[in-house]
Design a binder for these strands. Structure first.
Lengths: 205, 205
DNA sequence: GTCTATAAGTAGATAGAC
DNA sequence: GTCTATCTACTTATAGAC
């Protein structure tokens, strides 16, 4: 049960929790109302329809996801520092919002049109600039040749997947290896960085 | 619209398509019936409830996902060959079933209990045996030290994510770089293998 | 702004004819 | 096995009192 004073903010917090847990089609307005500690009719008073309320939450989720990318990619720092910063920021965001990636990816898989509203967003620009910096590093011979798009995909995959497969792996890892999955998630800041460095650093002579 | 003669099989094909597209809560029995070219009542005649029909599909999806893992991990071949085989098999499965990972991961995020029925499955055994082989390789100094669990997560992340983010990246990659995303997906068999090799092969002297 | 009550439509599921 | 018709319960959304 949410505790904020402001009713609108209470609704948003409740909606975020329920939508992320159940998805658009699985969420119930009644459940959101209960979680917010208010009446169902009041939801419609504030946001008119379930779809509009969802749009609002989806937009906020997109911002959460993209702000980290922007922050790291737009800074004017050396390439390896940028990678390190991106990884740290991103795992930080995911540790606080572990269910966000699958929620987000599932909703866009089920309804890709929802992305239309974001096509002009900054994320894509800052990603482009990162791709260019990556190309420059390759041309200068400071990292091994790797297609920039593949590189980004590799990096994002290694960051996101451990959170996505947590329900699958956590019980196994815990039972069979005695490892707490959350510890493992925190370790990944260092592990992923090192793995990437190993993969792209030119062979030393 | 599905064309198989056998009604039960027609229903299953239709249900698979609809459930994977819309998820458990988003799917409608009416839509499955339409897709199968039969009546809604007949669905219930064959599978009694939506939940039972979904369970059946979910089980099949799990098998599709885990059979590739089993095949590659249980074979008695050199370590790097095993990696290569796993990557090839897995990307092959995903190219044929691109929406499977997000569907699967979303459903287990929303209802982790559904995994209970699988805990005794072979995948987990064959994954354990791979973890052991990986440890052996590290101890023998044939690959750089890397925590086996982290290694598997890295590999799976790089394999799965490009399919999961396809709705997000495909339009950008296509518009801004003129690259067909499906070409890029096929390239990944080679790219991921090379990336992993670079990351874990000991530094040559 | 917030509530209760209810309308209108839809979903899963069944009855019963063929 | 397969269909049409229908039941029952639930869901979003609104009307209207306070």
């Amino acid at each position: 049960m949410v505790k904020t004073e402001n009713t609108e903010e209470r609704i948003l917090e409740a909606a975020r929790a329920v939508f992320i847990r159940k998805g658009l089609t699985g969420a119930r307005m009644q459940e959101i109302a209960d979680e917010a500690g208010i009446n169902k009719a009041l939801l419609h008073y504030y946001f008119r329809t379930k779809e509009k309320l969802f749009d609002r939450i989806f937009f906020e989720v997109f911002q959460t996801i993209s702000s980290g990318i922007n922050q790291a990619f737009t800074e004017n720092i050396p390439f390896f520092d940028k990678i390190k910063k991106f990884i740290d920021l991103y795992i930080g965001v995911l540790l606080e919002n572990p269910y966000l990636p699958i929620f987000f990816l599932n909703e866009i898989q089920q309804n890709p049109e929802r992305l239309q509203q974001f096509i002009e967003k900054d994320v894509f620009k800052s990603m482009s600039s990162f791709l260019i910096q990556l190309s420059d590093e390759i041309n200068a011979g400071r990292i091994r040749p790797v297609h920039p798009v593949h590189f980004i995909i590799n990096m994002i995959g290694m960051l996101v997947i451990p959170f996505a497969v947590k329900p699958l792996l956590a019980p196994i890892v815990s039972r069979q290896l005695g490892i707490d999955y959350n510890d493992l998630l925190r370790e990944r800041k260092e592990v992923v960085f090192q793995f990437i460095i190993n993969a792209i650093k030119p062979i030393e002579k």
